[in-house]
């Protein structure tokens, strides 16, 4: 069974990626005012690392918050109010990581105006600004038709899903994921699949949970798509 699409499209090349974390070369922040200063000057790659690459680097998979700033505010500054305000930020709801920087600084400014003293941490608990080097490589596997996406997802590694569904939003002009961009290339016929992908609130999922949800929503979406027998 296949999905009836308006036109054909180029095959989708499944890629994978590996990441290695590195120090950003910026002084650590030992209090909230220093954090604000460093947020203003750190490369945008740092913000991406502390918000998005947390998904893919080795870490305990059940953290309280999804971004490192909120975790630091909670665990080290012991400022639950700040942690909650930082924790709710979804970077993908913003138009760019520069906007994210402005939002972060605004939240920190607000907190600094509320507290009677500058929140600080003990020596050794400083916030350390990091970034990463990402190496992308071919898996030499391809998708040819929309239904292949559903069937091949279970074979994809978590880092491959990260690359195509999460990291893509940094690469693409409209901030969409690679799967959606490819499906859109078939014209009409893949709308239900695209809507299903857009409906995933992935920021609060682990990659394992994201993979499971992708498979689940595409299974539902493709069973709802009008289908036809594929001609050979």
């Amino acid at each position: 069974m296949g999905i009836n699409t308006e036109k054909t499209n180029m095959p989708f090349e499944i890629k994978d990626c590996a990441l290695i974390s590195r120090m950003a070369g910026i002084d650590t922040a030992i209090n909230l005012r220093e954090l604000r200063e460093r947020l203003l000057i750190c490369p945008v790659e740092c913000l991406f690392h502390h918000f998005s690459e947390t998904l893919i680097r080795p870490t305990f998979d059940d953290p309280e918050y999804r971004n490192d700033f909120a975790i630091w505010a909670s665990r080290n500054l012991r400022d639950r109010v700040l942690a909650e305000r930082l924790g709710i930020i979804n970077p993908y709801a913003l138009d760019s990581f520069e906007t994210l920087r402005a939002v972060l600084v605004d939240i920190v400014d607000e907190r600094l105006s509320e507290v009677p003293f500058i929140p600080w941490v003990e020596k050794g608990e400083d916030f350390r600004f990091m970034r990463a080097v990402t190496v992308v490589f071919h898996t030499h596997r391809k998708l040819f038709a929309p239904e292949d996406l559903r069937s091949q997802l279970s074979r994809m590694s978590l880092s491959s899903i990260y690359y195509h569904f999460v990291e893509a939003r940094r690469r693409t002009e409209d901030g969409s994921d690679d799967f959606t961009a490819w499906l859109a290339g078939f014209g009409t016929g893949t709308g239900v699949m695209i809507d299903a992908l857009k409906g995933i609130d992935f920021y609060f999922l682990t990659l394992f949970e994201l993979k499971r949800q992708l498979i689940s929503v595409l299974e539902r979406a493709t069973s709802a798509e009008p289908t036809y027998e594929k001609s050979t």
């Binding site: 590996a18 790659e45 080795p58 998979d61 990463a132 080097v133 990402t134 190496v135 992308v136 071919h138």
Partner: peptide
């Protein structure tokens, strides 16, 4: 999920690949 040698080896390879290509943040091997 995090501390078996396959992850460790992957990071060594990533580092070497990155160093060889000048440590740009985004590379295609």
């Amino acid at each position: 999920e995090n501390f078996l040698l396959t992850r460790h080896l992957r990071e060594y390879l990533t580092l070497m690949s990155g160093l060889r290509r000048g440590l740009a943040n985004y590379l295609v091997a």
